[in-house]
């Protein structure tokens, strides 16, 4: 079992002919990920890694079955790529691009509302279910099949979380994306991990900015049967209001420091560690 992606997930790569895409598609295929096709404007009809390439998702949908997309499109193309995905009713889209304009994300969020599409990212390493599927750029060689689910809002720290959970292995690792506005937040993903048989405990990596962690804690507190969550929130040493992304949320919703965030998470029942290198010990103490 796993969350969002497994060996049966049929994946189409948007922007398959780009350099980044080529590198990661080759790796994912070698690892057994079921990539079935790709899109690339004006390249329809070609073959890439033996996979059919279509001009767009509409054309692809007529000829091939797929349920998920990975986008290797540049930041400025994400809005158009998301519109295609929403119109083609793709269930899951992982968007890797860094630097998507925030106003584009506002538009994308309103497109997603009421649609059949779930978006992960942007600015994320993606999703990886060890030995089954890789949607994004997570290196396969550091993950191993196991019982810890990881959800992270800090891309580079998700690798740290993987290293901390090596003894237990991972059910699925999901990067929500580092940006101010993201496609999906913790709650939607936590819900799935709570229902996943393979996952015995969750690791959550949060950040100083925005209010996503508070919402996650609120959701966790409301659960009746819950799996243990070990959480780390980065940025306690960050000078207050250092980034505008941070300021926006405290401006609109009141001051919440990293310490406040940690307290809120602790009160919800999560095990909150102060140092990222304490995650392993906290998990070991659970005797999973």
């Amino acid at each position: 079992m796993s969350v969002l992606a497994n060996k049966n997930t049929r994946i189409l790569v948007q922007g398959i002919t780009g350099t980044q895409a080529s590198f990661h598609v080759r790796r994912a295929l070698a690892g057994g990920t079921q990539i079935v096709a790709g899109t690339s404007p004006k390249r329809g009809g070609e073959e890439y890694f033996g996979l059919p390439v279509f001009n767009n998702l509409r054309e692809a949908k007529k000829q091939i079955e797929f349920d998920s997309c990975v986008q290797f499109v540049p930041a400025m193309g994400v809005k158009a790529a998301m519109r295609e995905a929403v119109e083609a009713e793709v269930e899951l889209v992982v968007s890797i691009a860094q630097g998507v304009p925030v106003h584009d994300m506002l538009e994308i969020k309103s497109m997603l509302k009421g649609s059949k599409t779930m978006m992960i990212g942007p600015n994320t390493p993606g999703i990886i279910t060890p030995e089954e599927a890789s949607l994004g750029i997570f290196p396969e060689n550091i993950v191993s099949k196991g019982c810890i689910g990881i959800i992270s809002r800090a891309s580079t720290l998700s690798y740290e979380a993987v290293l901390e959970t090596q003894e237990f292995g991972q059910s699925t690792v999901i990067g929500l994306g580092d940006d101010m506005i993201i496609g999906s937040d913790y709650r939607e993903i936590m819900q799935r991990f709570m229902a996943d048989e393979a996952t015995k405990a969750l690791v959550i990596i949060g950040k100083a900015d925005n209010s996503y962690e508070q919402a996650a804690a609120e959701y966790y507190a409301s659960l009746e049967n819950k799996k243990p969550v070990v959480a780390f929130v980065a940025g306690i040493a960050l000078p207050y209001g250092h980034t505008m992304g941070y300021a926006h949320d405290i401006i609109t919703h009141g001051r919440v420091t990293v310490t406040d965030k940690k307290n809120i998470m602790r009160e919800s029942g999560m095990i909150v560690v102060d140092n990222i290198n304490d995650i392993h010990k906290a998990l070991a103490d659970l005797h999973l």
């Binding site: 992270s152 800090a154 580079t156 720290l157 740290e160 990596i205 950040k207 980065a234 306690i236 990222i276």
Partner: peptide, 12 residues
């Protein structure tokens, strides 16, 4: 190399 690492470095 990464914002998350910067935050974690600062905290640690």
């Amino acid at each position: 190399n990464g914002e998350g690492l910067a935050l974690a470095a600062m905290d640690t």
